[in-house]
Amino acid sequence: MTPLQHYLALATILFFIGAWGMMARRNIIMVIMCIELMLNAVNISLVAFSNYMPSPVPGRGEVFVFFVFGLSAAEAAVGLGIAIALYRLRERLSVDELDGMKG
């Protein structure tokens, strides 16, 4: 059986790939996709923990994952809503062009 640690390694690697993507890509839709990726990374760790770690109430990790599902749907909706509003205003989707406020 694959040890727990392998799943955790996968989750952590995926988390950091997503983090890099958030910092690297200019397009806001890409940023949102990277957020979804990172949420998935956390989900993997949650399900893995749920499957491997003994607990008085097994399955809590899976339940947690359902909440993260709900959240990622909500985040996607709000994020894409902001993206569309931004597009209407400026015809651009580059996050880094928005620096009207600084200092």
Binding site: M23, A24, V95, D96, L98, G100
Partner: peptide
């Protein structure tokens, strides 16, 4: 505080 959100990240 350059105003660029990704540098904030």
């Amino acid at each position: 505080h350059s105003g660029k959100v990704q540098s904030y990240l």
